[in-house]
Design a protein around this nucleic acid. Structure first.
Lengths: 342, 342
DNA sequence: TTGTAGGCGTTATCAC
DNA sequence: GTGATAACGCCTACAA
């Protein structure tokens, strides 16, 4: 891109001249500092408004201790998840006058650490939000600790006390769902697991096993298919399950995206859902409730998590130290809520 | 968030001292300027590497004419579209050493203009990419022109010559699709339109009408349902069409998200797709090829558009002036490509 | 090919 | 309550 014109930028100086006060006073008003006379404040604010003055964030970051920017580190096979996460966090940031930098990354590539370092150094980020699997990456956590950069972890799997975090009881939720399916009379329940790199995958699988065991239903490894939280893997898992000599009467996919994949296979093969085959999902991305009304899903509103995470990060100077914030979930049965759980 | 520590930042000064050259020389190496001795360059580069030096983008933006940041202004009812757009543009930016700021916005709210102004002023963006409907907003275009901020328009509807842009021939594509459906023997073809605020909506509808007229099939208003490019509106449109006394034998939705909605309704009602009802989509978000193998769709890879748009913006200093870049599209018939079109 | 001086727009520090 | 003045880290312009 070509260099920009040295355009007629409105600066603090212009405001101060116009308002008849010093630059510092304008700065005080801008940053809501105290020790500014009420009328001075009003007068300055009026000039700011009139001149459409907007402080340069570059200058603020350079001179001050804050950059008014935070980053969202997010890589997830479900576009709906990413979308909800981004929108939710951005909304909160906007209210707080902070800019969110969305930093999609590729969990396959080994660049994550370097990306975050460069984010910290070049952008001077004020803090960041990590979604799985980055939220469990020991190297990342170590880096952030070493650099003293505030962060919030979404759905951490281990060392939950390391830094603030938001999460739901995934194991419990998967347990509830499985029990619900058992309650419907199912005994052979297939499970399509999530990406092994995500802590939530193991948690959800564990809940599934718990419920079977509690009901004296043996855990059959043939009924547990690997997946990666992506649509295609859900389809593949369902295909494998339906091809078994003794196929399951229900399939519980570890997230909605895979549940959708499973459903598409069922439809293709003419298997009636849910009459001949119950399919359940997890996560409450809109795809579940919108695309597949017959789907039973664990409702764990992504947007709510986003809000929580943002609030936790932005309110960090409340100074109440490390916080773990557990959210509730609900079991959505074919469009109608049931079994809410705090 | 609490103020950060005044940490031990590595600066150009450190590098210059370590390398035994002046600050300016380091700067030259950093910016790939010429007039630096080969060995000097190598030595400096080595030190940069060893010290993990990363220039502060705040300082660069403040001192220089570029901020090395561009923004993506995007609001679309399809998460897949947003996801592909973001990832694609970000990839290109990364290669170019530029940061992409994703700026989701709400097309309902009236804040768009103010948001962009604040983006320009506070962030000193180097340029931006506009997706519909922002790409056709006259106020936005005027603002950018006035401020001399480079931009690229994605799928503009009018004044296509105003600024560089990428697009496909939507009318032609919709024409082709409709003709294809007619070729299958359909005479009553329903159409679910996109959000009236998007220029593509009218273009696609026009193509649909063109094809019908060309085939001497009367355009029946009852077969044209309003929509907004969102899943729910696709479902609603399909429901309305199927409820007609004389329902269509095919439905052409103006985007894939709505086609998916239409399909879900068909499935719910037990209408066989595509035997009893053909459903066609448009846009090639993954939902089409992944979720709905029976779907016929206009393949207009979102990611390719993203690449084009980014390249157009990033290469703007090539200085070849305004450019309109038209991309090809293809008609995807049930998973297998057909009728490619440049 | 390399170096020096000055300033970008804001905040921090410390006087008044 | 308010205001000088010195940074912040880098780039531009100009000199050597």
């Amino acid at each position: 891109m070509p260099p920009k014109d040295v355009s007629l930028r409105v600066t603090i100086k212009d405001v101060s001249r116009e308002a008849g006060v010093s630059i510092k006073t304008v700065s005080r008003v801008l940053n809501d500092e105290k020790y500014v006379g009420a009328e001075t404040r009003a007068r300055v604010a009026a000039v700011v408004e009139r001149l459409h003055f907007r402080p340069s964030s570059a200058a603020r970051a350079l001179a001050g201790r804050r950059s008014f920017q935070i980053a969202l580190i997010c890589d997830n096979p479900s576009p709906y998840y990413v979308y909800e996460m981004q929108s939710g966090i951005r909304d909160r940031c906007e209210e707080a006058g902070v800019r969110m930098i969305a930093q999609p990354y590729d969990r396959q590539s080994q660049r994550l650490l370097a990306d975050i370092e460069s984010l910290i150094d070049s952008t001077q980020i004020d803090g960041l939000i990590l979604t799985p699997p980055a939220s469990d990456d020991p190297a990342v956590l170590a880096l952030l600790a070493a650099r003293a950069v505030p962060f919030v972890r979404v759905s951490p799997g281990q060392d939950a006390q390391q830094g603030p975090s938001t999460f739901i009881d995934n194991r419990r939720a998967a347990y509830d769902m499985t029990r619900y399916l058992i309650g419907l009379g199912h005994r052979r329940i297939g499970f399509i697991a999530g990406d092994p790199g995500f802590a939530t995958s193991a948690q959800r699988l564990a809940g599934y096993c718990d419920a079977l065991t509690a009901a004296n239903v043996p855990v059959d490894d043939a009924l547990i298919q690997p997946g990666d939280y992506g649509f295609a893997s859900g389809a593949a898992g369902a295909a494998a399950l339906l091809a078994l000599a003794d196929p399951p009467s229900a399939i519980f996919a570890a997230n909605d995206e895979m549940a959708a994949g499973a459903l598409s296979v069922a439809h293709q093969r003419g298997v009636k859902v849910p009459e001949a085959l119950s399919i359940a999902g997890f996560d409450d991305t809109p795809i579940a409730t919108m695309v597949w009304p017959p789907l039973t899903t664990i409702r764990q509103p992504t947007r709510r998590i986003a809000y929580q995470a943002a609030d936790l990060l932005l309110a960090a100077d409340a100074g109440d130290g490390v916080q773990q914030r557990e959210l509730g979930f609900e079991l959505m049965v074919r469009g109608s809520t049931a079994v809410p759980r705090a």
